[in-house]
Simulated assay, not measured.
Amino acid sequence: MPSPTRRTVLALGALTGALLVSGCTEDHRDPDRGRPDPDLPLRRRAVAATDALLASYDAVLAGPGTDRADTLHDLRADVEEHRAALAAGLPSAVPSGSAPASGSATPSGPAAVPAAASVAASVAELAAAERRTAAARLADLEAASPDLARLLAAVAASGALHARALGDSGPVTAPAPAPSTGTTASGSASASATASGPVTAQASPQTSASGAASSRPAPLPSGATGALQAALAAEHAAVYGYGVVGARTATGPQRDSARAGYTAHQARRDALQRLLEDAGSTPTAAAAGYRLPFAVTDADGGGRLAAHIEIQLTAVWVDAVAATTGALRQTAATALRETALRAAQWGADLSALPGLPGTGASDGASTTAGASASPST
């Protein structure tokens, strides 16, 4: 890992975005289009799944001899926040904190809370339920509006954090994208990607008068391009920041974690550069220098910087979820989840909705909220 060779600094500020607090008209129709809100069934399904988790938390907490009651109560409080955010705008939603009894259906959707036999009876079962539910959130990303997709991705990232905190380190597997070419209904270009691997733009074949397919790349919509360029700029800064972390850390587990973070952000940076180039855009270049949010003189400061970097990146990637669709949206959700997990590994106290504005997290750094990434001059 290269050490910094000059005084350069990093300040990854959380990008602002509007937290979804949407409502519905009295007849639950979109006033602009005069038809039912397509997010309603997705919200109902998400609320039902959240009620099932709440029932599982209650069952485990009521069980004999649990020695993790404080942790379980804290995680359950996060799930309550998830439910409140997901139920916003639902007609006749069950009030937060009133999860139906086992086996009863929630009034806000067709899905039912699991029968008693399906409710988690142990911490290990609860951890697995958190991981499965997080994966299920991702299945609805493509059909969701940008704001709901942002929320679902944040809730899925939180679920992955819960599963890890409870001892389940299995992968949260996103559904494989359906093969397609061209643009989706909302105008975003399709892409081929794995849950954790590189992303590449998939050009839409264009047939010329002679019948030959053009090799010209399909451009990304402007919203997606802007969000991905912002993510690339943040990943450039993260690569530099992890160079600082590694330079201040002695050989051992913390340095190994720093090297792993450095490598992961290099891979994300390189994948974004290829994606933008393949789509015909000029990737954002790294700045000559970056402003650190605080002085880093030892391993403790390096750990705080790593946590700070990851927390700020959650805001970048949650916005990328909203700006993209299809495989690109899944890739952005994966990046959000991975950066949240790394933030927790570095000791950050993440909010119930990682990356969303108005939901703070503590990384031990004294920084100004909302500051933008600023190259040094």
Rank of each mutant, 00 (worst) to 15 (best):
T5P: 03
L12P: 05
D27R: 01
D30Q: 02
P38Q: 12
P38M: 14
L61T: 04
A69Y: 00
E80A: 09
H82K: 09
S92A: 15
G97Q: 01
G103A: 11
G103P: 09
P107Q: 06
S108C: 14
A116W: 02
S118D: 09
E125R: 08
E130Y: 00
S145M: 12
G159S: 14
H162S: 13
V172T: 11
P175L: 08
T183R: 14
T183M: 08
A191N: 10
A193F: 10
T194P: 05
G197W: 12
P198C: 08
V199M: 13
T207K: 12
A209F: 05
S215W: 11
A218Y: 00
A218R: 14
G223E: 13
A227N: 02
A227D: 05
L228H: 05
G246M: 11
T251R: 03
S257F: 08
R268H: 03
R274F: 01
P283T: 07
A288H: 11
G289A: 14
R291W: 02
V296Y: 09
G301Q: 10
R304S: 05
R304T: 14
H308T: 12
L313W: 08
T314V: 05
A320Q: 03
Q330V: 08
A333S: 14
A333R: 09
L336H: 07
R337I: 02
E338Q: 13
G347V: 08
A365G: 10
A369N: 07
